[in-house]
């Protein structure tokens, strides 16, 4: 079955083109639209088969909305999402009914909150079996067998199949969520902050599990998080988002050494580090993230950028190719020398 078309090294599995999602704001008795929260604005990128693309940004940057638009939990305002199915790129926004249901087998999600994401009234067996039942894939004894396999896959005891979620710890619950996401054997898994609700000592368990599963099942991850150190650890390439737009797209090893966008630089410097060997100068961004319903003109970051010039508040910066698969949206990309993190190891 395996063809080079679908499983090659650099095959693009998902392509996002000019994706925009605005949420209307209603006011008053007649619920008139008085504005738009511009959650995702003209975002384009592509994901290669088998890689982990990290998406990092602060609250309100649109990363979760982006994930949900890709999964068609929300309808996009404009733009396209293309997904490779049987060697062809299909526009998933044009899918309906059974076709959409079929696509859902390929794309799954892992949630942030291990409590809200599992129905407390169902047993682990029922939770993991649900996607298989929805798609009528297996039933009866076979279903049980498959759930057992999935539990084993994520490192849980098969004997606990009939327990309810409240018998498990946060980390174990997160594994149950991962098992459910993998039940349909998806190719692309969107991980929406999968470790940020977990205890520090347990985070590493789940990160390791995700990495093992990727190696074993050849999964492609879209890994969304606000914690730069986690994203940097797990990702091959990283997309940095600010206020609904991508500001920088960069291979993970480049990110900390060689940031090209002032926002990335500030983000890197803001991450508190436990490593006494890491040296950096703290850049404190002034002010707050602007309201996404009324973003600043030009470069959206100019209100907080310490390098901002006149042009930044007037023109929206274009994408620049900095070489080495490194792209940035900044007027001053060629002129600035930004600080990364240096390791004196």
């Amino acid at each position: 079955m395996k063809t080079d078309m679908t499983d090659g090294n650099d095959t693009v599995i998902l392509e996002i083109k000019n994706l925009t999602k605005h949420f209307p704001i209603y006011r008053g008795f007649l619920r008139r639209i008085v504005g738009n929260v511009q959650a995702v604005n003209n975002v384009s990128f592509s994901v290669k088969s088998g890689e982990t693309l990290g998406i990092v940004g602060e609250s309100g940057c649109g990363k979760t909305t982006l994930a949900r638009v890709i999964l068609r939990a929300y309808e996009a305002t404009s733009g396209e999402v293309l997904y490779r199915q049987n060697g062809e790129m299909i526009n998933i926004f044009s899918l309906k009914g059974q076709e959409l249901k079929k696509l859902r087998r390929d794309m799954q999600i892992i949630f942030q909150d291990p409590f809200s994401s599992l129905n407390p009234r169902k047993t682990v067996m029922e939770i993991i079996a649900e996607p298989l039942r929805i798609h009528g894939i297996s039933r009866g004894q076979e279903l049980k067998l498959r759930v057992g396999e999935l539990l084993e896959l994520v490192g849980l005891n098969v004997k606990h199949m009939n327990r309810y979620p409240n018998a498990f710890s946060g980390g174990q619950r997160q594994r149950i969520g991962i098992a459910r996401a993998l039940a349909l054997r998806p190719k692309l898994v969107i991980c929406d902050e999968p470790v940020s609700a977990l205890d520090v000592s347990v985070q590493a368990q789940v990160i390791n599990l995700l990495e093992d599963l990727q190696n074993e099942l050849g999964l492609t991850y879209l890994f969304i998080a606000h914690d730069l150190s986690v994203v940097e650890h797990i990702s091959d390439r990283i997309v940095v988002m600010y206020l609904g737009s991508i500001v920088e797209m960069v291979p993970a090893q480049e990110l900390y050494k060689n940031p090209k966008h002032p926002y990335t630089e500030a983000l890197l410097s803001a991450v508190p580090s436990i490593d006494p060997n890491t040296h950096k100068t703290r850049i404190i961004l002034p002010g707050e993230i602007p309201n996404p319903s009324d973003p600043p003109p030009g470069c959206k970051f100019h209100t907080r950028c310490r390098y901002a010039r006149e042009i930044c508040s007037k023109e929206t910066p274009k994408w620049r190719d900095m070489g080495n698969d490194h792209y940035v949206a900044c007027h001053l990309a060629d002129q600035l020398t930004l600080q990364g993190i240096t390791n004196n190891l």
């Binding site: 520090v200 000592s201 347990v202 590493a204 368990q205 650890h233 890491t278 390791n343």
Partner: peptide, 18 residues
């Protein structure tokens, strides 16, 4: 805890159990 720029793609060493 993963450290930026230190151990990319290296297996983390979690504390087992919860």
């Amino acid at each position: 805890v993963p450290i930026i720029g230190n151990q990319t793609k290296k297996r983390l060493a979690p504390i087992p159990g919860s």
